[in-house]
Computed example of a mutant assay.
Amino acid sequence: MTDHITPAPAARTYIVFTDGSCRGNPGPGGWAFVLTDPDGMTSERSGHDPDTTNIKMEMDAVIHALQAVPEGAAVHIFTDSQYTINGATNWAPNTWMKNGWKGAKNKPVKNQDRWQQIMALMETRQVTFEHVKGHSGNPGNERADTLAQAASYGESAAQ
């Protein structure tokens, strides 16, 4: 059961599970996604950053996943990051962008470069998000987590 309500994915939708991992915060990190295309073919991708934060890796997973989906396509993203969901669906479009990328106390939004990438990619795709509880046995989330953790060590577990 999810705790974030979104419309049901369309029939011809790319389904994506994303996750980020960081050993220390900041520290070495990894991002990953598991993507199933509308024809049922699944692919996996992950990447490493030697000095990062968990939030940046969560966001990078979404960025790379959206880049892997063709423009104009419908994509439904499952993530265990409420921060990423709220930022992409509420804070960025409803506040930060309207305020010149300023947040609370008129300070620049953290990770603005990544938020701008996410928002630009969302403009050319039909994106919905759904929260999935991390480490709860969801196979897609568990696989993305395994890939992201391996990537945090600079290793690839992608098949």
Rank of each mutant, 00 (worst) to 15 (best):
T146P: 05
G140N: 10
T79L: 13
Q67R: 14
N25I: 13
Q116P: 14
D145Y: 03
G72L: 01
A8R: 13
W96E: 05
Q149Y: 10
V16L: 06
Q149T: 15
W31H: 08
H48Q: 00
W101L: 13
G47M: 00
N94I: 11
E130D: 11
Q112Y: 04
G24D: 08
M57Q: 04
A61S: 12
S81A: 06
N106F: 13
G137A: 12
N138Y: 01
G72E: 04
G27E: 05
T18E: 03
A148S: 03
A8H: 13
N94R: 11
R143D: 00
R114G: 14
T36L: 07
P9V: 00
I63L: 00
W91R: 02
N94K: 11
T146K: 02
R114M: 15
V34I: 01
M57C: 07
R12S: 02
K110F: 15
T13W: 08
M57D: 04
N106V: 10
E58H: 00
V16E: 07
Y83F: 07
M59W: 08
C22R: 00
N90I: 14
T53V: 07
R45Y: 13
E71Y: 03
A148P: 08
Q112R: 06
R125F: 06
N111W: 08
F129K: 02
A68W: 07
E130A: 04
Q67M: 14
A73P: 08
A158D: 10
N86H: 15
A65H: 13
V69D: 10
M119R: 05
M57W: 10
T79Q: 14
L35Y: 03
A11S: 03
N99D: 07
A104V: 08
K133C: 07
N141F: 03
D60Y: 11
K98E: 07
H64T: 10
V132Q: 02
D113M: 05
L66C: 09
D37M: 05
T95C: 03
G103S: 01
T95L: 11
F33G: 10
E130V: 06
T89W: 09
D80K: 13
Q117A: 11
K105V: 01
P70H: 08
Q112S: 04
W96F: 04
N90L: 15
I63S: 14
P93R: 09
S43G: 06
T84P: 13
A157C: 04
A104W: 04
I15V: 01
P28G: 06
A61M: 03
A157W: 12
V109L: 08
T53W: 08
P26C: 05
N106E: 12
P28K: 03
T89E: 11
S156P: 12
T2N: 12
I15E: 05
I55K: 15
E71R: 06
R12Q: 02
P28F: 04
D51M: 10
T84G: 04
D37S: 14
A73L: 02
P28M: 12
V69C: 05
T6L: 11
P108H: 13
A158W: 06
A151E: 07
P26R: 02
T53F: 01
A68F: 07
D145E: 11
K133V: 09
T53I: 06
R12I: 13
T42G: 05
A32K: 05
A65C: 03
